[in-house]
């Protein structure tokens, strides 16, 4: 076991999957010679060559569409969208084609593409280098949506995603690409999709979060220890499929829920969790469900630290929820 960063873990998963299976290949803008603008594909071009680390023209539609064609033919393409903010030109390919190929063909044409993309704020990226569009994809039947929060999960979830028979949108929390390091199992390491992780056990309030919000939530939870608030933190890890059992089990224990994400609140992924709690755990709840999220505005540049859920804002919500009822 060695301590590496999240982006190094992504790199390790890619390299090991490519060594294990000649049908795995990487494509995207600047992923080859340059090793990716975040260096996620560093060294792959040298090891595997231009055939398997494909620098593409600047066209997200082209990248996703070509990856679909490759997958139909039998390859396992891993396409990088340089920033998820630039994925929208490919939205038609993702929603109309990638998500629906297996279904519309009656199961004849699986489409095992992984779309990796850095998402989220906190890097002074403004409106177009900061967004969290997971809800669009989670809302589209046929796509799996995965968001790791630490290096070991990044490697384990990405490896599972690459060998999964279905399309996976793999959102990488770029804000913690390098700020979070952790031990990562050497060799093949898989984390199943659809299994949440309890990253901090507690009995008073359940907090549900994913990706770059996990360190924020853990900091908030730690800050409340002195006040005697025992916070349980559940890292969802995969939004589709969603580990509903883990969510319900935690709330049945604590009776209180706070949901945290960077994306805007209105029709955000947190709304689905709140709805699940209303449908299936209402009688376990001792307090209203709270959502701490990005606001219902475009992502602001200069004021991003006010927009993003901060440890203080999350701690405030946990404290209020703990006091209710």
């Amino acid at each position: 076991m060695t301590e590496i960063t999240l982006v190094q873990a992504v790199n390790q998963a890619l390299a090991e999957a490519m060594r294990a299976d000649p049908d795995v290949l990487v494509l995207g803008e600047d992923v080859g010679v340059n090793g990716g603008v975040f260096r996620a594909t560093e060294g792959l071009f040298k090891e595997f060559g231009a055939d398997r680390v494909v620098d593409t023209p600047l066209s997200e539609t082209g990248i996703v569409g070509a990856a679909i064609g490759m997958a139909l033919y039998g390859l396992k393409p891993v396409a990088e969208i340089q920033f998820v903010d630039f994925i929208y030109p490919a939205f038609d390919q993702i929603v109309s084609e990638l998500a629906k190929f297996r279904y519309r063909s009656g199961g004849q044409y699986p489409c095992p593409v992984v779309l990796r993309s850095p998402y989220g704020g906190g890097i002074k990226g403004g409106l177009y280098h900061s967004q969290s569009p997971e809800a669009y994809f989670a809302h589209t039947s046929g796509l799996k949506v995965v968001v790791p929060s630490n290096p070991a999960d990044a490697k384990g979830l990405l490896t599972t995603a690459i060998f999964d028979p279905d399309p996976v949108i793999f959102l990488e929390p770029k804000r913690i690409y390098r700020s979070v390091t952790g031990e990562v199992p050497a060799g093949e390491h898989r984390v199943p999709l659809g299994v949440a992780a309890t990253v901090r056990p507690g009995t008073d309030v359940s907090v549900f979060a994913y990706g770059a919000m996990i360190p924020t939530v853990l900091e908030a939870a730690a800050s409340l220890e002195g006040e005697g608030v025992r916070t349980e933190v559940i890292d969802l890890r995969s939004l589709v499929p969603l580990d509903e059992e883990a969510i319900l089990a935690s709330v049945r224990k604590t009776g209180r829920a706070v949901i945290v994400h960077e994306a805007p609140r209105f029709v955000g992924f947190g709304a689905e969790i709140a709805a699940i709690l209303a449908e299936k755990a209402l009688y376990s709840l001792k307090a209203p469900v709270k959502r701490i999220t990005g606001f219902d505005t475009p992502f602001p540049y200069a004021l991003e630290n006010l927009y993003l859920p901060s440890p203080a804002r999350v701690a405030g919500a946990i404290r209020d929820t703990a006091k209710e009822g």
Partner: peptide, 25 residues
């Protein structure tokens, strides 16, 4: 004969991706 969809043109780039895969194989 790959299953068609209704949005026009989406299949064009799939044909190119499949050809890239065929080249690789």
């Amino acid at each position: 004969f790959v299953t068609a969809s209704s949005p026009v043109g989406t299949q064009i780039i799939h044909a190119v991706g499949a050809a890239m895969a065929a080249q690789r194989h």
